[in-house]
Design a protein around this nucleic acid. Structure first.
Lengths: 339, 339
DNA sequence: CTGAAAGCGCTTACAG
DNA sequence: CTGAAAGCGCTTACAG
């Protein structure tokens, strides 16, 4: 069943049916009604491929995700769901492509097959080959995260540097003198993962500025690594009394390690960082932390992308979010040893 | 740039280029080489919409996910990543549709817009309107999970009933007499969510069969609910000494609640259930549980769907997985009170 | 307000 | 081994 069939049954031309559907040309009330009746009766819906071919756009967004083999974290997956949701709001469909692993064919299909009107990229590296590839294509794209030298490009990100800096100042204000940053996995860091790199630099700089001794530990994205990571911290630098963490997945392990070590939070040890509200509230005690507003970021990314698609010549825009640090219960003043 | 441009530059007809690409008709080595050179030089790739229109298939699978508003669990998100990965293996793209919430337009587009060759549905209810809708369409589909009366249909699922039954027997064998099932959220249960319903029935039947007293508690999919749920259990039925859980998201809360109550696992309290290996191993102590093999299920779902697409008249197939219960450290013999 | 026709970029019988 | 042409199902100037 196609538009011709509808036209025949409604006794009009195919173009009239098309215009009745799109509203791009006035159609008399009578014919419109007749057409709509037939459409409703037959449950007709235009063929998306034919429409895409004729219109030159697909009404579909591409979303490039890390390959599942590298086990997606909650946070990453949260972006996926939020992007799909935001796109659905605009009646846009989302085509998924796992990239980076063995599946670059999927990414190539997305970039060159004209299956999508634009692409959203996440988990951006400071020097990201996918961004390079996309730049040399004509396809509009927006990144969640940003490369080291974004120049004039379209992106949305959380200001990890600023947030980590504020965490360090917060701890310094509380009197802590030895602090540690719990970063992401060594592999991610080695690959030049933006948030980890920026957090590390900002952490060390802020610690130095405040005269604190600052250490950095890399943890794989899993509870067990959080546990091992903290034990490493505790034995290597027993003087450390506070941690800043950007590793959500390691959080449960960190909590368990603190407990095992017999350390009370916050009276013996303070914890803060950049952690999605939802997880921060699940920590015990609730974590003083800056949110990672995945939904807002996804919404913004979709909006920026729509803007760029609508006007490829528009001046590039970006958004660097700096959510507030919510004061909860995991940080406290340094309890100095009693002499 | 299109196939005509390639043809012109290679000095052949468009059909020859097409056949050189598809291999559906022999092409002389010389022309093939010439064509491939031009293609490589211009970086040509066929327009996916045009091809889909001409071929009558899109090489794309649809995946219907629960709306993000109902906050996806880890497990649900894991299926998404695994399905995308499995599809990529077959050079298939995946189009996502959030359904159930306000976004039924997205689902309708997928079902009637001929954007996909087939659909994978997850989070199936015993009586699922999406399955009803899909059945009355001509679109091939496979469900991860199964409706109450699947009849002859295509699906893959974990046998929650059998697994929960085995958990109960395991606990009974260890001497436990008062057991509880930690199920999913009241809303999901009320909606007729398959795994929760089947687990409950099997749990109560097995408990009765073994002469145990069995209770059921529903928990939202979050740690806080797990904590509250266990406290409810502990105060309402203090005699309970073991739990079977199918609620992965509530696990951290359950662990914390046991700890708060001063209960050692497994010497004071045993825990088992149907929980993804990865999470079971993160529990403290590691959980004796049956795996939810998301990757395998996703792979099977994609394979079944491809089979159904290739031959719509094929006899429906399904797979009911019954992964073994891995004996880890969270269950032990009932420690009877000393008289 | 409406229709006839060209065109989007492919694939695939049909001919040779 | 190769080409000319029809057709997939839409949209959109062009005419009236």
């Amino acid at each position: 069943m196609n538009i011709g069939e509808i036209a025949k049954r409604a006794g009009v031309s195919r173009s009239t049916v098309s215009y009745a559907l799109s509203g791009k040309r006035p159609v008399s009330t009578a014919t419109a009604r007749r057409i709509n009746e037939v459409i409703a009766e037959l449950g007709y819906r235009p063929n998306a491929s034919a429409r895409a071919l004729a219109e030159g756009r697909t009404r579909t967004l591409g979303l490039v995700i890390p390959p599942a083999s590298r086990r997606l974290t909650n946070a990453q997956l949260g972006f996926v769901a939020s992007v799909v949701e935001a796109a659905a709001t605009h009646d846009l469909d989302v085509l998924l492509s796992p990239s980076g692993g063995d599946h670059d064919r999927s990414f190539e299909r997305m970039v060159t097959g004209r299956r999508v009107d634009g692409v959203i990229l996440m988990e951006i590296l400071l020097d990201d080959p996918r961004v390079v590839r996309l730049r040399q294509s004509a396809l509009p794209f927006v990144t969640i995260g940003h490369v080291e030298h974004p120049g004039a490009s379209w992106w949305v990100d959380v200001d990890y540097a600023a947030l980590v800096r504020r965490c360090v100042h917060h701890l310094a204000d509380l009197g802590h003198e030895h602090v540690v940053l719990v970063s992401r996995s060594p592999e991610l860091v080695a690959a030049g993962y933006g948030p980890a790199a920026r957090a590390t630099d900002a952490f060390l700089a802020a610690a130095a500025q405040r005269g604190l001794s600052g250490h950095v530990v890399c943890c794989a994205d899993e509870p067990a690594a959080g546990l091992a990571g903290f034990e490493e911290i505790h034995t290597t630098w027993p003087e450390v009394t506070a941690a800043v963490t950007i590793n959500e997945a390691a959080l449960p392990g960190l909590e368990r390690a603190l407990h095992r070590a017999g350390l009370d939070v916050p009276s013996d040890f303070s914890v803060t960082g950049v952690i999605a509200d939802r997880l921060a509230e699940d920590f015990h005690p609730p974590l003083t932390a800056a949110d990672v507003p995945a939904e807002e970021m996804a919404r913004l990314a979709v909006e920026l992308l729509m803007e760029r698609i609508a006007d490829p010549g528009a001046t590039p825009r970006h958004a660097l979010l700096e959510p507030p640090i919510s004061l909860r219960s995991s940080t406290g003043a340094l309890r100095r040893p009693q002499f």
